[in-house]
């Protein structure tokens, strides 16, 4: 009886640890909740991993899990003994895991990580953010090359609107401000990375503003209740609905390029393989892969494998 109970307890523990987080994008809040830290060492404990084995961590949202699979797949293709962990949690949790050696590689975002390490950071341009980030990292951690792919706030219009007004950037949108209704979450109205900044950086004051929840924002843009919307740049809805992401020449929304954060001791072992992946990633192909994961419900490891094969990386 006792043995049965123990076995049952073990199964329950495994099941609970295996469950990932929800779909919420913790980038939005900068500092997410610290939940999930307990599963940091699921799989193999940090110390017991065989020499040379690389664990790629993942945060608790689908994009991070996908990136972890991409990195792990690319490493395996180069003969490195690598695997992706189960989702760990928010930034607080996975940075601890990296520090204590439970993981060696972690997909990160330049802007979000920089503001996490240095609250007063002001850099906005991708290269400046990347350079500033390198100076703020702990001594035993390094970042590899940043990729062109970014996950950040962006202004998005429908294909029809983009064609109608010949829109390429937010500056073009500002020229037609009297015809533009903007849909975004309610807080967009009062934020610097929102209507306030759009006005000061681009002189853009929309005709009207529709405060909506995130899924309703996509609906509003799709059905024409809004002409422009605030959506994350890798949101699968962009590819799905042929939305057009407008350039942000004034860098109002900063830069949040994807970058691998690596334990210094493992840098030489992983840098070639991971930088090859970084070179191939774009916001668009990342968003397409993310669509396969969140909309078509494919396994992240399968999607990652297909992409690596396609790009000649595996």
């Amino acid at each position: 009886m006792k043995r049965t109970l123990m076995a049952l307890a073990a199964v329950v523990t495994l099941t609970v640890t295996g469950c990932g987080g929800g779909d919420d994008n913790p980038l939005q809040s900068g500092t997410g909740g610290g939940a999930g830290g307990g599963s940091a060492s699921s799989g193999a404990g940090g110390g017991s991993a065989p020499a040379g084995a690389i664990k790629v961590g993942a945060a608790d949202f689908p994009e991070s899990q996908l990136l972890a699979q991409l990195y792990a797949g690319a490493l395996k293709a180069k003969g490195v003994n690598a695997s992706a962990t189960d989702p760990i949690g928010a930034r607080e949790a996975y940075l601890t895991a990296l520090k204590d050696g439970s993981i060696q590689v972690m997909p990160e975002y330049t802007g979000s990580l920089l503001t996490y390490l240095d609250k007063s950071a002001t850099a906005k341009d991708p290269d400046q953010v990347y350079a500033a980030l390198k100076t703020k990292l702990p001594a035993n951690q390094v970042v590899l090359d940043k990729s062109a792919a970014e996950d950040k706030n962006s202004m998005v219009v429908s294909k029809k609107t983009a064609d109608k007004y010949q829109l390429k950037s937010i500056a073009d949108l500002a020229k037609h401000q009297n015809d533009i209704t903007v849909a975004a979450p309610p807080e967009f109205k009062g934020r610097e990375q929102g209507l306030v900044g759009l006005k000061s950086a681009y002189g853009f004051t929309p005709k009207s503003f529709r405060p909506l929840k995130s899924s309703a924002v996509v609906q509003a843009l799709k059905n024409g209740q809004a002409d422009a919307a605030n959506i994350f740049s890798t949101d699968p809805a962009i590819a799905e609905n042929n939305f057009v992401v407008l350039d942000d020449p004034k860098k109002l929304f900063g830069s949040d390029n994807i970058v691998p954060l690596v334990a210094k001791a493992n840098e030489s072992q992983v840098s070639a393989a991971l930088n090859a992946v970084q070179a191939k990633l774009t916001t668009q192909n990342l968003s397409e892969m993310l669509k396969q994961v969140t909309v078509d419900k494919k396994d992240p490891d399968k999607v990652a494998e297909d992409f690596l094969k396609q790009q000649g990386l595996a």
Partner: peptide
């Protein structure tokens, strides 16, 4: 709102 919002198009408050 989920059931009905896709039934309306254009810049309107109806949905």
């Amino acid at each position: 709102s989920m059931l009905l919002s896709s039934k309306f198009t254009g810049d309107t408050d109806l949905p």
